[in-house]
Simulated assay, not measured.
Amino acid sequence: MEPLKVCLNKQYEVADDITVWEWTGSAWDEGAEASQWFSDYLGNPTKLVRFNTATEIRKVDPDYVEEQHQTFFSDGYPFLLVSQESLDALNELLEEPISMNRFRPNILVEGCEPYSEDLWRDIKISKFSFQGVKLCARCKVYFGQNIVWNWRDSSAKGDGKVLKLGDPVYVFKKVSSSAEAAA
């Protein structure tokens, strides 16, 4: 297919009744061209929408985070942290290996012990400070950890708020066992 370009500065009509889990709200419809592109690719009528930050708020579960952090269309938290070593250990137990895209983390680390990321509470990646919130439930297992950005504790300000491949990862606080990890 031809590449699709979506201008994030342009606002189209508002699409109502967009649902993610138990949240329902409005979103910006990214237009007929984007809808047709995805419909053609997927073989079903589809719309591309963008979270309507002007009017909508989708908070993360307050049972796990003291501050009122928000997410958009992600599962339940803005970030999922997983290590390559955890996937490697999981694949040793499976008859048929699975790939990392099955879990869709947006932060993938390597160079640690399998499942050690489940214990991390205060994390710094480059100039960004994160808080480990809770293990990520995947059907019958937990895999990876949901985390939030501690924007008040980060030295990353202004433009350029981007994590890059190879950024150093520092763990400042962790729980002592998986039994202590919030699930």
Rank of each mutant, 00 (worst) to 15 (best):
F51D: 00
D75N: 13
E67N: 12
Q36G: 04
R50K: 12
E117Y: 06
I125D: 04
E56N: 04
D122P: 01
F128V: 10
H69E: 14
A89L: 08
S83G: 06
E110Y: 14
R104T: 12
T53E: 14
A54V: 11
D40K: 14
P45C: 01
N44T: 10
L87P: 06
P62S: 13
F130V: 03
L93D: 14
A89F: 07
V65S: 14
I107Q: 07
K47Q: 13
S74T: 15
S99C: 02
E113G: 04
D122W: 05
E56T: 00
V109K: 03
L119C: 07
P105T: 07
F51I: 02
D88P: 03
K127V: 01
D122F: 02
F73N: 09
G111A: 10
V60R: 01
E92T: 12
K134F: 00
Q68K: 13
K59P: 07
S99P: 00
S86N: 05
T55M: 12
E110K: 15
C112D: 04
N52S: 10
R121W: 02
E110V: 00
Q70V: 14
F103K: 03
S129F: 01
N44E: 12
E113W: 03
F79K: 03
Y41R: 14
S35R: 13
I98G: 01
E92C: 10
D88T: 12
A54D: 15
V49T: 08
V133H: 00
K127E: 14
R104F: 06
F72P: 00
P45N: 06
Q36L: 14
A89M: 11
K124M: 13
N106A: 09
F79S: 01
K47L: 09
P78L: 06
V133N: 02
V60N: 01
G76I: 00
Q84K: 14
E96C: 05
T46A: 05
R121N: 06
F72K: 10
V49D: 06
N101Q: 11
K134W: 00
L80Y: 04
S86R: 05
L80F: 05
P105Y: 05
F51N: 01
F130R: 02
E67Y: 11
E66K: 13
P62R: 11
S39D: 10
R58N: 10
F79C: 06
D118P: 01
L90Q: 14
G111W: 06
L119Y: 08
P45E: 12
A89T: 05
S126E: 08
L90G: 07
F38S: 03
N52V: 09
Y115A: 04
L81Y: 02
D75T: 05
Q84G: 00
L87V: 13
P105Q: 08
S39P: 08
R104A: 12
Q131F: 07
N44C: 08
N91H: 08
T71R: 02
L81G: 01
L81E: 01
W37E: 05
I57Q: 14
E113K: 13
L108E: 11
S74C: 09
G76T: 09
W120F: 06
L94V: 10
S86K: 02
P97S: 05
F130A: 03
E85V: 04
L119K: 10
S35Q: 12
I107T: 03
K124F: 00
K47I: 04
N91Y: 11
L87K: 04
F79Y: 15
S74V: 07
